[in-house]
């Protein structure tokens, strides 16, 4: 096993472990920090899968922008720990776990049965990605995305205003 494979499995295990921490914590601040670890491990995996542009974007957009927004709102609202389940929590947790395992089995079966053929070489350098994004089939989508971001900006300000 070479070094890159070792890194892949190490970061994969780290991503899964911190994802378990995200969903098992009652304090949302701890969940947010564990989610940052998951996102950074995924960024390393993207890098190992030959996508440097997406790896950097993952750090900048997710860990840098979205998670800061989450932490900001968590600290703004002064969130307390989640209380205990009032009723029969154990049955509900069992059902939720069974549903999640069923979901994983279903998606896993479909994905594992896909006949993919041999691997082909990939050139996903930032230059190639930029040429793809700013050339015709994706240029319209790119411009539409900027309108979406503007709409989200205006919507967020309108929703969070005090006198609405």
């Amino acid at each position: 096993m070479d070094f890159a494979a070792l890194l892949f499995y190490a970061f994969g295990a780290l991503a899964l472990g911190s994802a378990i921490v995200v969903i098992s914590q009652r304090n949302p601040i701890y969940s947010a920090f564990a989610l940052i670890v998951t996102l950074c491990s995924l960024s390393a995996i993207y890098g190992l899968l030959g996508s440097p542009f997406i790896a950097v974007l993952q750090i900048v957009v997710y860990a840098g922008a979205i998670m800061v927004l989450f932490l900001f709102v968590l600290m703004l609202l002064n969130v307390k720990r989640e209380g205990r389940d009032p009723g029969d929590g154990r049955t509900l947790k069992g059902v939720a776990l069974a549903l999640a395992v069923l979901l994983a089995l279903q998606i896993g079966t479909v994905l594992m049965r896909a006949r993919l053929g041999p691997a082909r070489p990939l050139d996903a350098s930032t230059e190639k990605m930029a040429r793809d994004l700013f050339s015709l089939p994706y240029l319209y989508v790119f411009e539409a995305t900027s309108v979406l971001i503007l709409a989200a900006l205006v919507g967020a300000v309108a929703l969070a205003r005090k006198d609405s």
Partner: peptide, 23 residues
């Protein structure tokens, strides 16, 4: 892909389990 399936199932499980809207 297996890692992706595991992460997706964990995310779905979290939506079922947690009651804090931000989580």
């Amino acid at each position: 892909l297996l890692l992706s399936v595991g992460l997706f199932a964990l995310g779905a499980l979290g939506v079922f389990l947690r009651r804090n809207i931000i989580t």
